[in-house]
Amino acid sequence: MEKLLEIKDLYANVGEKEILKGLNLTINKGEVHVVMGPNGAGKSTLANVIFNNPAYTKVSGSVEFEGENINDLSVDKIAKKGVFMSFQSPEEIPGISTFNFLKFAKGKITDKPVKVFEFKKQVEGFTEELNMNPKLIERNLNVGFSGGEKKKNEILQMLALNPKLAILDETDSGLDVDAIKTVSKGIEMYKNDENAVLIITHNTRILKHLKVDFVHVLVDGRIVKTGMGELATEIEENGYKEYNA
């Protein structure tokens, strides 16, 4: 199995506050991982630290992507390596249409000129699969989008940019049942043997619609248990109480 992401003994802070306290995680190509945990456990921090968000500080440990240490790479360089993150609250950017933004980003990530007609067809195909209003991609990036539309737009970007590793940070939160199904469908469409998905969530709803390889329980900055899909069911029934001690 080929390693895609390997996090070793990672300690990270927000300001002075310790959030991650010795986290280990390995993701291979072709796998779908879920990290679950109560609020404040460090779930979103994990996503941000992988991406080297300057608002977070790595204290020690390492993040490797395809065998290369990416601890100190800038955010855009990490994106160009093939890492993608779906945001919990995507930013609204006026003045550029969603499609033009995607085209621009695609060009930056692939470092090649984008074949506009072909790319447009492809993106339009994705919007259809995701039950998105086709006019949405002509509107300014996320501006005035509903919560559900923003989340779907993140999945659309994932499909269009086609990364090697997609990190989905609370993509399922705040969505109704139909939207969760659609988002799951998007993930299924994206998934293949060469890439991987890391889903970060605090509830188990999305897991009903997705085939998951590993479930990790994150409590107090550390992964305290790893199991298969049934671990999610167990947590749904019992919550995180037993790990809090």
């Binding site: 855009d76 990490i78 933004f101 930056k108």
Partner: peptide, 19 residues
Amino acid sequence: KEIFYLMSRGLSEEDARAM
């Protein structure tokens, strides 16, 4: 946050600010 969002899509900081 806006800069981080745009850079996570492969834009350099300069591109992100200009946008």
